[in-house]
Simulated assay, not measured.
Amino acid sequence: MPDTNPTVWLTLQAHNPAVLIDYLVGTFGFDLVARHGEGETVEHAELLWPEGSGGVMLGAYKPEGHWTREPGTAGGYVVTSDPDRLYERVLAAGADIIVKINETPYGSREFVVRDPEGNLWAFGTYTGAPRGGHPS
């Protein structure tokens, strides 16, 4: 695990953030590192990906808020060193698989899952283009 906190966060809002937290931890293996709120109320939570430096911040959907997005409309890509093992884990958890594990034309082994709020999550081996790379 990296020694520094993430500097880029995926931010989500959820109709039922407690359920989404349990899903992200139990199904995908995120680590819950912070949760603020009483009981089932989640004002703010932070989850870290155990294989890298990425994180997710989430909380309850508040349509009147200044930083609001409709739940279930986000998508994220998470790099994993062992997509086959993770795929078996999400299958065993009964996840909603949108794209089965496959090899992509850009060299990734990956799959796509829909979470209980409707967000799409791709997990794969593609780590992105190197810094200084140029689009073709």
Rank of each mutant, 00 (worst) to 15 (best):
residue 54 G to P: 00
residue 8 V to N: 05
residue 11 T to F: 07
residue 114 R to A: 15
residue 123 F to R: 01
residue 6 P to R: 02
residue 17 P to R: 01
residue 133 G to K: 03
residue 75 G to V: 04
residue 42 V to M: 03
residue 81 S to E: 15
residue 76 G to A: 15
residue 44 H to P: 02
residue 96 D to F: 12
residue 37 G to W: 09
residue 52 G to R: 00
residue 103 E to V: 11
residue 22 D to N: 13
residue 23 Y to C: 08
residue 105 P to E: 10
residue 119 N to Q: 05
residue 5 N to C: 04
residue 43 E to L: 11
residue 104 T to A: 05
residue 79 V to M: 03
residue 33 V to C: 04
residue 23 Y to S: 08
residue 72 G to R: 02
residue 31 D to M: 10
residue 113 V to P: 04
residue 40 E to G: 04
residue 88 E to V: 10
residue 118 G to W: 08
residue 1 M to V: 10
residue 51 E to V: 03
residue 47 L to V: 03
residue 123 F to Q: 03
residue 30 F to G: 07
residue 93 A to R: 12
residue 39 G to S: 04
residue 4 T to N: 13
residue 111 F to A: 04
residue 114 R to Y: 09
residue 101 I to D: 07
residue 76 G to D: 01
residue 63 P to Q: 02
residue 24 L to S: 01
residue 110 E to S: 09
residue 99 V to G: 00
residue 89 R to F: 09
residue 94 G to I: 11
residue 96 D to M: 10
residue 42 V to Y: 02
residue 74 A to C: 11
residue 79 V to N: 08
residue 42 V to Q: 00
residue 70 E to S: 04
residue 6 P to E: 06
residue 127 T to R: 15
residue 31 D to T: 13
residue 112 V to A: 14
residue 113 V to C: 04
residue 9 W to Q: 02
residue 4 T to A: 14
residue 133 G to T: 08
residue 25 V to E: 08
residue 88 E to F: 02
residue 101 I to E: 07
residue 124 G to S: 06
residue 47 L to H: 02
residue 63 P to M: 04
residue 6 P to G: 07
residue 17 P to H: 04
residue 10 L to W: 06
residue 49 W to L: 12
residue 8 V to F: 11
residue 24 L to R: 00
residue 103 E to T: 14
residue 36 H to K: 06
residue 92 A to H: 06
residue 49 W to E: 08
residue 1 M to N: 06
residue 126 Y to V: 02
residue 111 F to D: 09
residue 19 V to W: 00
residue 29 G to H: 12
residue 124 G to I: 09
residue 1 M to D: 10
residue 59 G to S: 05
residue 117 E to V: 00
residue 12 L to F: 10
residue 125 T to N: 12
residue 5 N to L: 15
residue 59 G to C: 05
residue 122 A to K: 10
residue 56 V to P: 10
residue 126 Y to S: 08
residue 96 D to E: 15
residue 72 G to K: 01
residue 49 W to K: 04
residue 96 D to T: 15
residue 121 W to A: 11
residue 120 L to E: 13
residue 119 N to A: 04
residue 23 Y to V: 05
residue 29 G to W: 10
residue 65 G to T: 03
residue 63 P to L: 02
residue 55 G to S: 07
residue 107 G to L: 13
residue 36 H to C: 01
residue 93 A to K: 12
residue 87 Y to S: 06
residue 121 W to I: 15
residue 124 G to K: 07
